[in-house]
Design a protein around this nucleic acid. Sequence first.
DNA 1: GCCAACGTTGGC
DNA 2: GCCAACGTTGGC
Length: 159
Amino acid sequence: MLAYWLLKSEPSAFSIEDLARSPKRTTCWEGVRNYQARNFLRSMSVSDLAFFYHSNADPPAIVGIVEVVKAAYPDHYAWQPGSRYFDDKSSEQNPRWVMIDVRLKQVLHAPCSLESLRGVKGLENMELLRKGSRLSVQPVRKSEWEIIMRLSGAKIRGS
DNA sequence: GCCAACGTTGGC
DNA sequence: GCCAACGTTGGC
């Protein structure tokens, strides 16, 4: 069963333009260091779709659509001393954190700013819009996905 | 830059 | 197990 997600990235760290320039428009999604977010990464399957969201941006917005092309595997950055993602409690023998690979499917012609999504009927319970929401990996309901796809004018089929 | 909302850490 | 202190996220 195809599932839908939302992935946050600060464009100053890694933007949708960076992804568009990446080899095969594909990147690993490393650095998630929150247990709830990690568990969502583990739940992802190849061919699941996700919104690419620019956080700490002007304006914060959903800017594209990516596809999961590799399911969760150990995040080796956690083992690298000096990496900003280093975690001495993670090891090759006992990996604590995981990453996935995603490929860019589409850059939205009309990005959906956070502000523009507030008040949209059907998005009342969306995690992204919850006050104080900080989850960097979050599930998106199919109904929410379809509403946003329509708003953005994106052409990808959601089935 | 401010600060609310979190998650984590560590003393007890 | 509680909870205060602290660090981080991320909108504004």
